[in-house]
Write a protein that binds this DNA or RNA. Structure first.
Lengths: 155, 155
DNA sequence: AAATATTAGTTACATTTGTAACCGTTTCAA
DNA sequence: TTGAAACGGTTACAAATGTAACTAATATTT
């Protein structure tokens, strides 16, 4: 008799612990969230609008704007008017942000080390493959309404 | 040059999609959240207090109380005074809740099917092992304060 | 080229979640 | 036994997040 697993539930707990661990390691450096968006912005500094960022992190524009607000307040990011389309803003990271990148990477490595400490190299590799597959899948999933209909029909 | 992965970030996205998929499949049955707590309550009906539930789901007591409120509103759960300790309440699920259990399990199976559709049996097995290890690890992790200190020292 | 629709970004408000103080009950030490 | 501390649960308030309506700029249609 196997114990029932709800992956969504376990994952949400794991991600909470992961991110709060990362956050406490990074707190002394003055940044306690939005690590992925910041890294992404650093990699594409001066080339992204808020809309582009929203698509990259798969969030709505309000959420994205709040990230930009937050990072701007911390002097890690600047909004610059796009001359071609005055509706858009080009996002450009500051030197502070660039200096922070290695700290973040170090903190991520440390967090991984903590959470995967009892994984063998092979197990890590397998797990990474699974995560990549899942992440690819969720990014191509039809919207929930469709899923419900398909589910009902099948019954 | 490998692309940087932040597991916490990916997992939080995956769990969101997982749970919202589960939620849309279950919505027609009148329950859109708290699947794990409800299943756990059904398995231990009449034996748990709110505190016990809080420990099982690793949440604070306020969050737990809100779940109990929610499930009680939906007529899935009853609070009963504990005669031995009048501070405590024994949680007992209703027949409605019991009837819902197979629906929930069905919905979970369907969600897994959707998200793991491109996994081989072996890959599923490997991934499950990884999740179990991670879940076990986060449940024994020292608190964030300690982690920061350990991290600083190491440097 | 004037009217309409669409887009990027923002604001305002509703809902959800986190945190701290609280209340009645029980435990424990003096 | 009685006064302080601890406990289970609740309430009240603060912070974060989701949703919808709005503004200014651009694109499209006729």
């Amino acid at each position: 008799m196997e114990k029932l697993k709800i992956y969504g539930f376990e994952m949400s707990r794991i991600s909470e612990v992961y991110l709060s661990t990362l956050s406490s390691i990074m707190a002394p450096h003055g940044l306690d969230r939005y690590y992925f968006p910041l890294l992404y912005l650093c990699e594409h500094s001066g080339k992204l609008t808020q809309k582009d960022l929203a698509e990259a992190i798969r969030r709505d524009k309000v959420y994205t704007m709040r990230i930009v607000d937050y990072l701007s307040d911390k002097d890690l990011l600047k909004r610059k008017q796009d001359c071609n389309d005055r509706r858009c803003q080009i996002l450009e990271v500051t030197d502070n942000a660039k200096k922070l990148v290695p700290k973040i990477k170090e903190a991520i490595a440390k967090t991984d080390e903590l959470l995967f400490h009892d994984f063998s190299t092979k197990e890590k590799e397998d797990f990474k493959i699974g995560m990549s597959k899942l992440f690819a899948t969720i990014n191509t999933l039809p919207d929930p309404e469709f899923i419900v209909k398909a589910f009902k029909k099948k019954k």
